[in-house]
Amino acid sequence: MGPKIQVTNLSLSLGNVEILKNINLTAEPGQVQCIVGPNGGGKTSTLRCILGQMPHSGDIRFEWAPDDQTRTIGYVPQFLDFDKTLPVTVKNFMSMVCQQTPAFFGLRKAYKESIEKALNRVQLVDKEKTMIGNLSGGERQRLLFAQALVPEPSLVVLDEPMTSLDEAGMEIFEGLIQELSANDKTLLWVNHDMTQVKRASDKMTVIDTTTVVSGLTSEVLTEPMMRGNFRAKSELTDSSTDSSTDLIEETAVEGAS
C-alpha cells in the first residue's frame, strides 16, 4: 500500500524568483493525483520538493503504511541526458539502476526475473539487447517506466512521461497507472494532456506558481474559476496545451449548463 502525502503551504524561491507559493495538495493510496499547469508553472519543482531534491518552506508529510518497510519510490523522469552512441543496452541500463554489481558484469540472477517482468510490462522484453540510444523516444520513455517498477514501488512519481509516446505507448502507460492504482499504490503524475488526465486520474491539482485549484478531477474540470486563470497563462506560455484548455473550457461550459 502506498503512502498518503499531504503538502501544505509549499513555497520555493530561487534567488529573487518565486517558483512556488503556498501549494497545497493531497495524494492518497489507490488514487492517481495529477498535477497540471502551464510550462514554468512549477509542476516539476513541486515534484522535486516532494522528492526532497529542492530546499523549500512549508510542510510535506508522508504517512507510510505500518507494514511497508521498504518505502520504495518509483520515479519516471522526463528524459535521460546521454550520448546516444554510448554502448549501454536496455539490459545494461536496468542493471545499472537496480543492482549494486557494476552493470558491465551483466545482470545478476537475483534481479533477472523482476527486470524481465518489468520489461515485459512495458513491452520491451524483445529489445533488451538494443542500445538505449537506438530506442525511439517512446521506447525510451517505456524503459524509464520499467525501471520505476523494480523493485515494486509503493509510490510512483511520473514527471511528464508521455510526451514522446504513440497511441500504443500511451495505452501501456495508462494500463500500468490503472494497475498500480488498483493495487493501492500512490501515484503523482505531472501531465499536460487533459484528455489523459480526465481519463486516468482521480484527483488533480492545477499549479501556476500558486495552487490554482485542487480536488477530484471531475470537480476540478468543472470549476469555472480555473477556466480563465489557467487558460490565459497556458496560452501565453505553451501552445501545446491549447487542446487541453479547450477541453477545460468545454467541460466548464457543460458543467455550467
Binding site: F82, V97, T101
Partner: peptide, 21 residues
C-alpha cells in the same frame, strides 16, 4: 570504481532519478 560504477553513471544520466534511487 567497482563499488560505485552504477551510481556514478546513473548520476550523469539523470541526477533526479539517481537521487530517488
Amino acid at each position: 570504481g567497482y563499488w560505485l560504477f552504477n551510481r556514478m553513471l546513473l548520476s550523469s544520466l539523470n541526477p533526479a532519478l539517481a537521487h530517488v534511487r
